[in-house]
Design a protein around this nucleic acid. Structure first.
Length: 564
DNA sequence: GGCAAGCTACCT
DNA sequence: AAGGTAGCTTGCC
């Protein structure tokens, strides 16, 4: 490694691959999505050279010199690009994000949290990157010789990791379609996600009320409902029933023996505590910036199947079903919240991947697939949408992609095992294509140790893991859904650029895009979001029909409102 | 007191 | 029963 101070003085051609790594003084921990701190240096690795730039005024000249390069290699590029955008215009260019590439190569093989630069250095290069020097950037305002060494090393090893990944791709014959079609473009759409606004005063008063009720009830009961030790003791004392654990499901099952009143009370107080601890004052303090805006960290590849994830705060887990109140406090700042979700996305993907004739037919006829499955199971074509039995069909549709068993179904539907077995045998005889798909995925995983999503993302399946069979069935479905959402998001981002309108997406949530749009542009956005979903669906699933469901209203809860 | 594991709860 | 993130309690050093 040759460390050279200042701008690169080597020729940059369209074959050049340059690694880029930024270092920042005093970056606030846990807020990596909000670029703060002072510019420390930028290291650029080219071949064996590492150029270290300590003057941010050189950045414009630097990137103009680097412009012809083939790839910019960055590890977790979202971070560096967000920082760079504080000082220079940094538009879309070809980024080789060694973090995203590695998750593509090794999704399901390594723990999803073990893809840091030091993890990759250890795995590919047998090099241990020391952490101490990096931490020293926090309290510093000048570059010591050690720190320059450290910064240069990061860029140097990032480039070596790129080379190692190239060798891996070659040796294992990876098709990089997923990366260039899905993940890399999604970087740019993710960078431009908008903050979402919450109603802070209302939130605080609501959380306070939840807290008050929770404390009052807990005091009355004389038990800490978050302590499984105390809850077990409490239940035993009042009813004599000994519980193995105190999970909601277990409590629900024990209801007849213990008594509904006792169980309901525990469940309610737990909900109140959840509402006030996870989503109370601290949530606001930790996550809300001025004007009530929330900036979450969204990760382009957050799961082994390729789904995105969100943290600080996790906007993909804001209560919806049991505590709907919080979504009402995610409010529009431009006019209207517009929520677009893909109807029955995973069942459609299952239909496509399995080629099951009956399922495909149901979708082609625009049937309600949960109802169709219900009718098939009960052998009764007259069952209507309002019929309670539809829940069973819905459950089976969902469970199919998770690798359902009769036991699982019986416990979730609270029905006898024989009944569940009967439903499943009806289902599998009627939808024989699905049966064949399940068998095929199990044998593919067993033979190759990986399965693939529709775009070609490989998801490794460990034969020795007890979940192996279910992963084999689920990963292609869940992962193809993720492919589709990211492609949709990116196509919509491009559409907005072409139409010269603001990119209004605030939250990508697995099968749903939540937008905050000006009222006068609402119709235009609706058209754009629908068209781009159709385009993304067509690119991945040919003529398989998909449909967007649109909701709009003052708040994120518009999904549950009837407002037009 | 600090840290990791266990448990529970929230989402699609 | 698939994939996540987060907070509190418990157990151990």
């Amino acid at each position: 490694m040759n460390i050279i101070h200042g701008l690169p003085n080597v020729p940059i051609t369209k074959e050049t691959v340059a690694s880029v790594d930024i270092e920042i003084f005093g970056q606030t921990k846990g807020k990596l999505h909000r670029p703060t701190g002072e510019f420390a240096c930028l290291s650029i690795g080219i071949g064996e050279d590492v150029f270290v730039i300590q003057d941010k005024n050189d950045l414009v000249e630097l990137f103009s010199r680097l412009a012809p390069a083939k790839y910019f290699v960055l590890h977790q590029s979202l971070y560096d690009i967000r920082q760079l955008r504080r000082w220079i215009k940094f538009d879309r260019r070809k980024v080789w994000d060694s973090l995203l590439v590695d998750k593509l190569l090794w999704g399901g093989y390594f723990n999803i949290h073990e893809f840091s630069l030091s993890d990759l250095s250890r795995r590919y290069l047998d090099v241990v990157l020391e952490k101490e020097t990096r931490q020293s950037f926090e309290g510093m305002n000048y570059m010591s010789e050690d720190m320059i060494q450290y910064a240069a090393k990061d860029a140097y090893y990032t480039l070596r990791i790129y080379e190692a990944q190239q060798r891996e791709i070659e040796a294992r014959q990876y098709d990089m379609n997923t990366y260039w079609m899905i993940d890399e473009p999604a970087i740019w759409a993710t960078l431009d996600l908008q903050p979402v606004k919450v109603d802070v005063p209302q939130w605080l008063s609501m959380a306070k009320e939840f807290e008050r009720r929770g404390i009052e009830m807990e005091r009355e009961m004389g038990v800490n409902v978050y302590s499984h030790v105390q809850v077990k003791e409490y239940v035993r004392k009042l009813s004599g029933v000994k519980l193995d654990n105190t999970a909601a499901e277990t409590l629900e099952e024990a209801k007849t023996k213990v008594g509904a009143e006792i169980i309901d009370k525990i469940t309610l107080v737990r909900m109140l505590r959840k509402a006030s601890s996870t989503y109370g004052l601290k949530w606001i303090e930790n996550n809300v910036e001025e004007d009530g805006l929330v900036y979450s960290d969204f990760y382009v590849v957050g799961t082994e199947s390729g789904r995105m994830s969100s943290s600080n705060p996790n906007l993909q887990q804001i209560p919806s079903r049991r505590i709907p109140e919080y979504r009402q406090l995610f409010i529009s700042r431009h006019g209207k919240m517009l929520i677009a979700d893909i109807q029955a996305q995973e069942p459609r993907i299952l239909a496509y991947l399995s080629g099951d004739k009956k399922l495909l037919e149901a979708f082609a006829n625009k049937e309600d697939v949960h109802l169709s499955v219900t009718r098939a199971i009960f052998g009764d074509p007259d069952i209507q949408k309002s019929d309670k039995r539809r829940e069973i069909g819905k459950m089976i549709n969902l469970a199919t992609s998770y690798g359902l068993t009769a036991q699982g179904l019986a416990s979730r539907l609270n029905i006898p095992l024989e009944k569940a077995e009967e439903f499943l045998s009806q289902y599998f005889s009627r939808f024989s294509g699905v049966t064949a798909y399940i068998d095929k995925m199990r044998s593919v995983a067993n033979r190759f140790e990986y399965v693939e999503t529709i775009s070609g993302r490989r998801v490794w399946v460990n034969r020795h893991n007890f979940q192996a069979e279910n992963n084999a069935i689920n990963s292609p479905i869940q992962g193809s859904g993720a492919d589709m959402l990211k492609l949709w998001m990116t196509e919509f981002w491009e559409w907005c650029k072409n139409e010269n309108v603001m990119y209004p997406v605030t939250m990508p949530i697995h099968d749903e895009l939540v937008m905050d749009v000006p009222i006068e542009l609402s119709a235009k956005y609706k058209q754009g979001i629908t068209d781009t979903m159709q385009s993304a669906a067509h690119k991945l699933f040919n003529d398989m029909p998909f449909e967007v469901e649109l909701h709009q209203g003052r708040t994120w809860a518009a999904k549950k409102e009837t407002e037009e």
